[in-house]
């Protein structure tokens, strides 16, 4: 019994120590961002603020607000579009397989893993040609296209769990391809859409490489603006921390509220699902 209790205490000890380590970045972000400027120093990084001061948030908000909005304008349409296309593809690839459809799926999946550096130069040439370079729409299209593999994968695995018999009986009742999609599949896909939407929302919000290369200053999404904020020598790091927290807030909130769906998306990304 004593042995057992000791091992339980040891387990808790390890978990608590690691949990504290995992939370230190959050602690430092919060504490630093709430300090008035004269308390921000390298020596007192860990100490609590003597009084709460929100001026770093107003400062960071002033700096980042336009870019925050850019990210909203980017993320909402890009997420919706890529979810809808993913659902269409997933429906075909799970319920209407044809000769070669499995091959097509594998060819699509590879796109999920490529380093985007390897398509970046032609992409930028293409976007300039069609007049979408340095526009939010250029970024939207980019994220929709390069999001296709993962959204297709997620919906295909999701739809594979819907029994074929449901579709067959709907077909006997006279439903055609579109009818089955609209009246059988879509009503059953709400949780699928939530998983895919959360996944795309998080990824597109957090993305940096496309954002920094396809847009210039005024059109920069939030993460590029945050990076510029932290790279600038004149901005104090209480403002940087407040900025980091503001930039992280939307995806953190989504995680806190809908964490279960976020984890499902995480697991679905490993091809087999």
């Amino acid at each position: 019994m004593a042995q057992l209790r000791f091992s339980t205490i040891a387990k808790y000890f390890i978990l608590v120590v690691l949990a504290i380590f995992f939370l230190t970045p959050v602690y430092v972000m919060l504490v630093t961002s709430l300090k008035p400027l004269d308390e921000v120093s390298l020596n007192t990084m860990w100490s609590l603020p003597t009084s709460l001061d929100f001026s770093s948030y107003t400062h960071a908000f002033q700096e980042l607000a336009p870019n925050f909005m850019n990210s909203i304008y980017l993320v909402v349409p890009a997420t919706l579009l890529s979810a809808v296309l993913g659902a269409m593809n997933g429906y075909v690839l799970s319920k209407w397989r044809f000769k070669g459809s499995e091959f097509i799926f594998t060819v699509m999946l590879f796109g999920m893993f490529i380093p985007y550096q390897s398509i970046l130069i032609p992409l930028i040439q293409f976007l300039s040609k069609v007049g979408l370079y340095n526009t939010i729409w250029g970024l939207i299209i980019t994220h929709v296209v390069y999001g296709l593999p993962i959204t297709t994968l997620m919906f295909r695995n999701f739809y594979a769990n819907i029994p074929d018999s449901m579709i067959e009986s709907a077909q006997i009742d006279g439903a055609n391809f579109l009818g089955v999609f609209r009246h059988i599949m879509l009503p059953l896909s709400i949780s699928g859409f939530v998983v895919v939407a959360i996944w795309q929302f998080t990824n597109i919000w957090n993305e940096f490489l496309f954002a920094v290369t396809i847009t210039n200053s005024d059109n920069h999404p939030i993460m590029v603006a945050l990076q510029n904020l932290s790279g600038s020598q004149i901005v104090q790091w209480n403002v940087q921390m407040a900025g980091a927290l503001l930039a992280a807030l939307p995806t953190l909130l989504v995680y806190i509220i809908l964490g279960k769906f976020f984890v499902r998306g995480l697991l679905a990304g490993s091809v087999k699902g």
């Binding site: 690691l18 995992f22 970045p25 972000m29 919000w205 993305e207 990076q227 940087q240 953190l252 984890v263």
Partner: peptide, 23 residues
């Protein structure tokens, strides 16, 4: 515990970089 170890997955590498640069 699970949530504490999982939440960094929801953050951007940029946020991580900015914070850890100071830590």
């Amino acid at each position: 515990f699970r949530n504490i170890f999982l939440f960094p997955m929801a953050l951007s590498f940029v946020v991580t970089g900015v914070v850890w640069q100071w830590l």
